[in-house]
Amino acid sequence: MKQDRLGPLIKDIFVYCDTHEHLFTLLTGTNDSTLYADIIVMLRRICTEAMAPIETMVKEGVPDVDASSALLLRRAEDLRNYQFDYIAGGVVSILRDWFQRGRQEPIPLMTALATNLTEQLGRQAFARNLALL
Rank of each mutant, 00 (worst) to 15 (best):
Tyr86Asn: 12
Ile46His: 05
Asp66Met: 03
Glu49Phe: 05
Ile13Trp: 13
Leu26Lys: 12
Val41Gly: 13
Thr34Trp: 00
Ile46Asp: 05
Glu49Gln: 07
Asn81His: 13
Thr30Tyr: 04
Gly89Ala: 04
Gln104His: 12
Phe24Gly: 04
Ser93Lys: 11
Asp18Ser: 12
Lys11Ser: 15
Ile46Tyr: 07
Leu71Ile: 08
Trp98Val: 08
Ile40His: 02
Ala37Lys: 12
Gly61Glu: 00
Val41Met: 14
Asp18Cys: 00
Arg44Thr: 14
Val15His: 08
Pro53Asp: 13
Gly102Trp: 05
Ala76Lys: 04
Leu73Val: 11
Met110His: 12
Pro8Met: 12
Glu55Leu: 06
Thr28Cys: 08
His20Asp: 07
Ser33Ile: 09
Val41Trp: 05
Asp66Lys: 07
Glu49Gly: 02
Met51Gly: 02
Asp97Ile: 04
His20Val: 10
Ile54Lys: 03
Arg74Gln: 14
Thr19Val: 11
Met57Arg: 02
Pro63Gly: 08
Arg101His: 14
Val91Gln: 05
Ile54Glu: 00
Glu49Leu: 05
Leu109Gly: 02
Val92Ile: 13
Pro108Val: 01
Ala37Pro: 00
Asp32Gly: 00
Asp97Ser: 14
Ser68Thr: 14
Asp64Pro: 01
Val58Leu: 08
Val91Tyr: 03
Thr56Phe: 07
Asp66Ser: 09
Thr19Trp: 06
Asn81Asp: 08
Pro108Arg: 01
Ala70His: 07
Ala67Leu: 09
Ile107Ser: 01
Thr48Met: 06
Met57Ser: 04
Gly90Trp: 02
Ile13Met: 11
Arg74Gly: 09
Gln83Gly: 05
Gly29Arg: 12
Asp32Ser: 01
Tyr16Gln: 12
Arg96Tyr: 06
His22Met: 14
Leu23Cys: 14
Glu77Ser: 15
Asp85Leu: 10
His22Ala: 15
Tyr82Trp: 13
Val91Cys: 02
Leu73Ser: 11
Leu6Asn: 02
Ile54Arg: 09
Phe24Lys: 00
Gln100Pro: 01
Ala52Val: 03
Ile13Arg: 05
Arg45His: 13
Val58Glu: 04
Ile39Phe: 00
Leu27Asn: 03
Val65Ser: 02
Glu21Arg: 15
Tyr86Ile: 06
Arg96Ile: 03
Phe14Gly: 00
Arg74Lys: 15
Pro53Arg: 14
Glu77Ala: 15
Thr56Val: 13
Asp38Asn: 14
Thr34Gln: 10
Met51Ser: 07
Ile40Gln: 06
Gly89Cys: 12
Tyr16His: 15
Ile40Ala: 14
Arg45Ile: 01
Met110Leu: 15
Leu9Cys: 11
Thr48His: 07
Gly7Thr: 07
Glu21Gly: 12
Gln100Glu: 14
Lys11Val: 01
Gln100Ile: 08
Glu105His: 12
Leu35Thr: 11
Pro106Leu: 06
Thr34Ser: 00
Leu6Lys: 00
Glu21Asn: 15
Asp64Arg: 10
Thr28Gly: 01
Gly29Trp: 04
Ile87Pro: 02
Tyr16Glu: 15
Gln104Cys: 04
Pro8Arg: 13
Ile107Met: 06
Arg74Met: 11
Ile94Leu: 09
Thr48Pro: 00
Leu71Ala: 12
Val92Phe: 02
Ala37Tyr: 10
Met57Thr: 02
Thr25Ala: 08
Glu105Gln: 14
